[in-house]
Design a protein around this nucleic acid. Sequence first.
RNA 1: GCCGAAGUGGCGGAACUGGCAGACGCACGCGACUCAAAAUCGCGCGAGGCAACCCCUCAUGUGGGUUCGAUUCCCACCUUCGGCACCA
Length: 825
Amino acid sequence: MPHADIPSYDPQAVETKWQRLWAERRQNEVHEDPKRPKYYLLEMLPYPSGDLHVGHARNYTLGDVVARYERMRGRNVMHPMGWDAFGLPAENAAISRGVHPRIWTTENIANMRRQLQRLGVAYDWTREIDTSSPEYYRWTQWLFLLMFRRGLAYKKEAPVNWCPRDKTVLANEQVENGVCWRCGTKVERRLLNQWFLKITAYADALLKGLDSLAWPERIKTMQRNWIGRSEGFSFSFAIENVPGARIEVFTTRLDTLFGATFLALAPEHPAVEKLSANTPQSAAVKTFAAEMRDISELDRAQLMEKRGVFSGGYVIHPLTGGRIPVWVTNYVLATYGSGAVMGVPAHDQRDLEFARQHGLEIERVVIPQAGADAVAGQQAFEDDGVLVNSDGFDGLTSSSARERIGEALAGAGNGRKAVLYKLRDWLISRQRYWGAPIPFVDCAKEGLVPVPEDQLPVLLPDDVPFAPESGSPLENAKGWREVRCPRCGGPALREAETMDTFMCSSWYYMRYLSPHDAVAPWSVDAAKYWAPVDRYIGGAEHAVLHLMYARFFYKVLQEEELVPGDEPFLRLFNQGLVLGSNNERMSKSHGNTVGIDETVDRYGADALRLFEMFAGPPESDYPWSTAGITGATRTLARIWRLVLGHPGCCSDTPGEALQNGAEDRDIRYSIHSKIRQITEELGDRMHLNTCVAALMTLLNDLEAATGKTADVAALHAGSRALVLMLAPFAPHIAEELWERSGGAGSVHLQPWPRYDEAALRRDLIPIVVQVNGKRRAAISAEPGCSEEDAMALAIRESTVSAQLDGKRIVKRVFVPDRLLNIVTG
RNA sequence: GCCGAAGUGGCGGAACUGGCAGACGCACGCGACUCAAAAUCGCGCGAGGCAACCCCUCAUGUGGGUUCGAUUCCCACCUUCGGCACCA
């Protein structure tokens, strides 16, 4: 019932008031408290690109709802925010607009922080971090040195991915379908001397750790595939007429060894020249290898067409002693295994295609079952089966043949079981300015020397030229580069490269725990209380990037006893995207963004938050809708009128007394069933959209009952519960209503409402009556009523008896308190 | 090509372990209030049928299957989205 004396709801006034008061009261600051269970909730830290749009708002609201809910459930909630502030866009802005990256970044951070505060997200801002600040990157450098000390950082010359547009190298994970993940430019291959981190040393640990994680299966699968473990056997072929020279191969199908009719080499393989030397093939091989070296492996893969030339040389089959021709091909990767493959055309589709093109022999050595035809088909037979044409191994199954052939080779001193991974070491050098400098110097006498820890941070020089033509700014910063060697005092040059920004984000979740620590990257005591992250919220695009790098870091940190447990993020949640009007991901580059400021100006932060949580399940995408947000606005205005129509309803004495009228029982049932439903769906399941729907239903029920029931106490209690459960979703209006209705303290520090089992008991419950599986009626029965009683009630329904008329009942299915299905003959 | 996820009203979506399909909201229609409009409130709202609006039929991408009963489980196919793409 609208009252004339109820003031109207002014979102802007309410929101600015509470944002100010929460900050003044330092309400969102947290500290270790051994008496309370901790909960570490984290959203992936954003890159400070300038402006937040409603897609970001969805992400951070999602985290905020969970954080506020967990706090009301009695947990000590860590919910920090910071900035992944190093990176290319800042530097590109410097080039195109002449603004220093530091200025550009600082301004963007200020703006985005303001926008997050406008959304009312309850971060502990005293813990804010900026990965581009010296206080932070000092420790990124420190961690790099720790990696070096542990033998996990090394510099070597290797063919690497080079993005010609961004003018830097990229890790394998940062190349998607042959193009740069950031700018979409086709990457090139260059031979450069670069720093790597030995993530491959942790391939097995990274793989095994996945089993314990409550992550979406799809992300775990992507990581498993990326790590790409395969078990097989490694052995070698002797090169004919070159004493002592051998070519090593790896295979997962040792059972097909007798079907090997050629050997395939990558063009980069060191034996290529040796084999063709002094043969008529020499010139052809040189031409082919040179041609292939100019094409990156990624491009070769895209060509798909298999090409190759005979090398002119032969190897000797290790068991039969037969001669096997060696070919140089474009389909064998130099960077996987040994860069050489035994060609078994009958049992490998790729080898078959190649063999057909070049008229090579095809010999079938595995058949589906004993006695089957051993003639090679159109398709390679790649399954396991039974061996034929394999000397003493005929008749064995593939799996036992792999064992026995392996034993035979190993017994002859040739080879062993081996495990190979697709995962490559992480290339972390970047030829760019806006990143953490690699803390090494190159001394004329001592070579590469680490900068001693007490000389960290190696500061980025501020005064450097930014121009597209002048090359890497650090390389040209002479005064900065020229230093004394920390070891011998002689002249040395600083490394002019910076670290991949994924280094910064691989450990930031630990820095939040003691962000102002000047003597350590974080406090181990604080880490013992807070770590690991209980719930991590972020996009799926980081599946094999940040999420794998951070896990690698954590495993190293665990061995250093700097962190508890062996995984950084126990549960991962991938939120869905907000799509723009063109049904594409909302982003600046798509030009379809809807800004936070314009939306909050118009509707208020609470309405935006409520709508974004309501619009769909948190894990699925949905298109932005300005029409939809009006529903949230209306809902908030209705809650405002309802609650203020029950003065004092949030005071500490709800004064709810059980009464007996049927209507009163209904309203109590509605209140308590909604508390139960929202509590169940808000926790682990995160069905936030149905929680909002349940809040709306409760609002409808309370409105409908207002003025119609004598049980004013129940309505007061219902309004109070509504305000409390609204609080995580629309924190400002809930706080205002709490205050205006006599609530003590902050609504956000109240215990979450509990439901009363007694209120959920009903005198009569509906039981659905079906005839042959089709719903014909619903009867009201006492809870726990017997099948016979339900049957008696059911046949009194005309719609049921009409269906039963003249038919014989052959069966009844009775689900107590739910359903009765009568089956006729 | 391989792997994974998803297809439900005009729209976003709901339906916990197989048990009333379409909760909740948007849009739309009718009505109340108003000089009028906005706001607000009430009612209706999957499609079709019948004189019968407390009834019936059909309907959750398509086709089959399991079951007393299928949006839910199984098989095949279609469409969309995501990942991987010569890893021996």
